[in-house]
Design a protein around this nucleic acid. Structure first.
Lengths: 250, 250
DNA sequence: GAAATTCTGAATGTATACAAAAAGTATACA
DNA sequence: TGTATACTTTTTGTATACATTCAGAATTTC
């Protein structure tokens, strides 16, 4: 999915494009929402979107309903759709819920995974490491999303996968900027996330459920650290004058 | 919702009815699926349904997509929709997942509930006791569904509610026949379920999260017992002859 | 007679015209 | 100036005709 990702010039985003199929349209909108290219809370005009994707309003509306069902957008009767918002309440709930779901999903995945799914997972991990190596933050976030979605498939639990899908939407949007290392320390953390992915693959491959669970919790801790560090960064220097001097000195 | 429930003669189910609004259609289909009036796995013909509800295919398709998004039905491209199936694998997963979600939802509900929601919950419980008192198994199952859905709203956690919604669909369908007591013992169990509901209401009202969690686990145990008893009933008597004698003696 | 192929029909999928609802704008009036 | 109300515009919702797809029947071929 993320290897054959759809590419088109960002400049062209608001111009009509050659007839896209309904599924491509669905995938493209998902990617644009996950990458926060479409900001949380922004309005979606079905006529404009239909024109943009070169399909009529009927299938466009169907796509929007599917996105609403999966939690990507929220629609109100007679008042259109908007990209799912991410307010402070959502974030709190997210941090509260994610570890439990992730851990259980990982454990179930290690119990129920199939061979082909394992190959998918390894492919997703390759895409992830490629993206981080290329410093492509957006691709890395999407590849990470896909990696965890595949683990969800492995878990073979439609109930929990419904939660997981919604968690991943917000997780990916939150972490959108994290894979562009701001410091050596950050770079080391991204590296570590990749290593944790590899460890999780091994545990799942060996059907070691408790280990997979434990690793996924460690992975969550790392991810949470980075999100907290982003939400609550180091405060700006108080002594602005000396900072200015320092700048001038460069 | 379950107090002003839609009534129409069961005989009329396959005849066209006076123009229903889209939302009514959605609710009616949900009820018919939850009550297993529409059996798991059965095919849904969108043309026939549209005619039945007196709306055109466009809004009918929208309703079907909404139902698919919520897990009531599953649709395949170019091959229509069918009521979500309930195979042995689904059941296993259900029993595996339900207690965790229910318990966490109950705990969160006790932390976050609002006043109006508490009133909704009490109303749902009244509907439930009325239905059991009237020996209306179907109404009881739907009222029970609503009761737990309201607790889901209280929890204020869209991630877990996505799981809960799907669990409740299967739970309600599984327990469809349970509220028609087959014995005094069964009657006592239904009574106990109602008492547990009351205890949960009190815990939630008092913001006592750990208690609500514990009560919901007890409630689950009872529910699970009854489902197991249904799936694996007492074996038929081996000594058929003596049974026959017994019957004749009556 | 069995297998493959081509029809045929019944369903789903799409486009478009029209209806209804909401939002925005201008005007009248206090 | 501020408010209310009627009108206009924009956007969403619905119906319907048409296109496409798929499953099964009929036909052909070996």
């Amino acid at each position: 999915m993320y290897t054959k990702s759809i590419h088109y010039d960002v400049i062209d985003v608001n111009l009509a494009m050659r007839k896209m199929t309904k599924d491509e349209c669905l995938d493209d909108l998902k990617h644009r929402i996950l990458s926060t290219d479409l900001a949380p809370g922004s309005d979606l005009d079905e006529t404009a979107l239909a024109e943009h994707y070169g399909i009529s309003r009927t299938p466009m509306r169907e796509v929007l309903h599917r996105l609403a069902g999966a939690g990507y957008i929220s629609s109100t009767e007679n008042r259109g759709s908007k990209v799912a918002s991410m307010d402070i309440g959502t974030m709190r709930t997210f941090f509260q819920t994610a570890p439990m779901i992730y851990a259980n999903i990982a454990s179930l995945a290690a119990e129920a995974r199939t061979g082909p799914q394992l190959e998918d997972l390894k492919a997703a991990q390759r895409a992830f490491t490629n993206a981080t190596a290329a410093n492509d933050a957006q691709a890395a976030a999407l590849a990470n999303h896909h990696f965890h979605a595949v683990i969800g498939q492995m878990a073979h639990n439609p109930y929990l996968v419904a939660s997981l899908g919604r968690l991943l939407i917000d997780h990916t949007r939150l972490s959108q900027r994290f894979y562009r290392p701001a410091s050596e320390e950050e770079e080391r953390r991204i590296e570590k996330a990749g290593e944790q992915h590899d460890a999780m693959i091994s545990a799942i491959e060996a059907y070691e459920a408790p280990l997979a669970l434990d690793l996924s919790l460690q992975h969550w801790d790392l991810s949470r650290d980075r999100m907290e560090r982003y939400v609550r960064p180091d405060p700006l220097p108080v002594d602005v004058v000396s900072l200015k001097d320092h700048r001038n000195a460069v």
